[in-house]
């Protein structure tokens, strides 16, 4: 068992857990998005670690990381647009007050 790989994977797992806690516990849309960023960051660590320790010759692994970084940026842009629209309409982005969005 490669200890470096395990260390990196546990880091990823911890970031994922913290992100999950944030997403579930925060009431503000922007704070919620920070949780999502952390979850995606955990995925990033795992991808890089897998590339380095399992398939260092396959550069598709690195490309995956680039795609996830793109997704992070897009998630932020779209999330902020939604937050902006909601703030204009209701004057707050508190998710406790957004019960009517429940389908």
């Amino acid at each position: 068992m490669n200890p470096d790989l395990l260390l990196a994977l546990i880091t990823g797992a911890a970031l994922f857990g913290i992100g999950l806690y944030g997403v579930l516990s925060q009431t503000n849309l922007v704070m919620l998005m920070m949780g999502i960023e952390l979850i995606l960051a955990g995925a990033l660590v795992n991808l890089v670690a897998f590339w380095r320790f399992l398939h260092a010759d396959s550069y598709a692994g690195q490309m995956f990381v680039l795609i996830v970084m793109t997704v992070m940026a897009l998630e932020m842009a779209v999330g902020f647009a939604v937050a902006l629209a909601r703030f204009r309409a209701r004057g707050s982005v508190e998710m406790e007050e957004a019960q009517e969005l429940k389908g």
Partner: peptide
């Protein structure tokens, strides 16, 4: 609930 879910996720994935 969030704490339990977060810790559980860390344990499971680790």
């Amino acid at each position: 609930l969030s704490m339990i879910a977060g810790l559980g996720a860390v344990m499971l994935v680790s």
